[in-house]
Design a protein around this nucleic acid. Structure first.
Length: 367
DNA sequence: AATCTTTGCAACCGCACCCGC
DNA sequence: TGCGGGTGCGGTTGCAAAGAT
């Protein structure tokens, strides 16, 4: 506080811009270029604050803007980037040519955040036997559940430490620690200082996770041959009785009691044969519900996982979400709508890709 | 048809950072 | 080195339009 406002507000117009004002602004910037926003209104003959002029130009009047109709691809990219970068809308906008941070932010707050919320709710329901769907959280569902959106606080980012509010704003990440484009595709934790401490494993939370793992995720270890479709759900993370065809070693030889007693630490889990570590993927319970957008953590949520492993799970998950072309190709080749659910075995290349992600997951958990 | 409620989004606000003086 | 102007960013608000009753 104590700082003078960016411009004198007395006598200045506020609210919606008229066509005449837009024209004045466009004409001035085309003639003089951007910049000097404080002086611009006066020079352009506008009764507007310089900030307002800048906002109007950047968000709506620039010629290189797309405006409207965010495509499914753009939407998917937004979701993925948001999971990785958090609410750094300007960074996200940088990956979407023709889109502004404000547009993406609004789209997120009015569409996507509710989809994610709806997905999480559905995910909870899924544990009770219902199927989940990301798209189930659309506006219709919102109305059906009576959720009020008006002036609600936007959903805070779990991935990048979404700030509690403008008054407690965190340092600007972009300016302090620039994030390159490649950071978005690299292992997300690579840009963070790796923790030098071994993960603190809260046994209670760990057991809670073990209590209700659903084996519905991808199973590249299904091998080269098609295995019958299978799904191991609830309370059987370590059960050997849940599937007759299940040959994945991790947990298969243990019942739940054994599991929670023998695996008293996460390191114990990792001590099993390296080939078995792929089962770790299932701890995360990566779940594709026939919709690549509908990727979720079925068992508990990222917050619990982060609590257990002392990491930001969402960052890793967002990378795992990177559903690349090789996998898509595998699915297109006949793996089916079920994506990577058991029984829908993708091509060898696709399986190898998932395999790679499993290994990365293990490395990440150990880091 | 009128009224109320909800939604979408344009615009505003305050804060933090950068940079020149 | 410190200060202040300029700018960028993300959260929040206001309001028109759409939908529901």
């Amino acid at each position: 506080m104590g700082r003078a406002p960016c411009c004198e507000k007395v006598g200045l117009k506020r609210g919606r811009w008229s066509a005449e004002e837009d024209k004045l602004l466009i004409n001035y910037i085309e003639a003089n270029g951007e910049g000097s926003w404080r002086a611009l209104p006066k020079n352009a003959g506008l009764l507007r604050c310089g900030k307002s002029c800048r906002l109007r130009w950047i968000n709506y009047l620039r010629s290189d803007l797309k405006r409207g109709n965010i495509s499914a691809e753009e939407e998917e990219l937004i979701v993925r980037l948001q999971a990785t970068l958090g609410n750094r809308w300007s960074l996200i906008a940088g990956h979407l040519p023709g889109r502004t941070d404000n547009e993406i932010k609004n789209y997120w707050n009015s569409h996507l955040s509710r989809k994610i919320q709806g997905s999480q709710i559905s995910s909870d329901q899924n544990q009770a036997g219902e199927s989940s769907s990301l798209s189930s959280g659309d506006s219709t569902t919102t109305k059906a559940t009576g959720q009020k959106r008006k002036h609600k606080a936007p959903v805070k980012s779990a991935a990048a430490g979404g700030r509690a509010g403008s008054k407690s704003r965190q340092p600007n990440h972009k300016k302090k620690k620039p994030i390159s484009t490649s950071d978005n595709t690299d292992h997300p934790s690579s840009s963070e200082e790796p923790s030098s401490e071994a993960p603190e494993v809260d046994k209670n939370v760990q057991e809670a996770i073990f209590d209700d793992i659903n084996f519905t995720g991808p199973d590249p270890l299904a091998g080269d041959e098609l295995s019958p479709s299978r799904s191991i759900s609830g309370d059987h993370m370590c059960s050997s009785s849940s599937s007759t065809t299940d040959s994945r070693p991790l947990g298969r030889d243990y019942d739940q009691k054994q599991c929670t007693s023998e695996f008293t630490s996460f390191e114990d889990l990792l001590a099993v044969d390296s080939a078995d570590r792929h089962g770790l993927m299932d701890i995360m319970d990566c779940d594709f519900d026939g919709d690549r957008n509908n990727w979720d953590i079925d068992n508990d949520d990222g917050a619990d996982l982060a609590a257990v492993f002392n990491v930001e799970a969402q960052d890793m998950l967002s990378w795992l979400w990177d559903f690349d072309d090789s996998i898509s190709a595998g699915l297109d080749a006949g793996a089916g709508v079920g994506d990577l659910e058991y029984g829908n075995v993708p091509t060898a290349a696709a399986a190898a890709r998932v395999d790679e992600k499993h290994d990365a997951m293990v490395a990440w958990l150990l880091s």
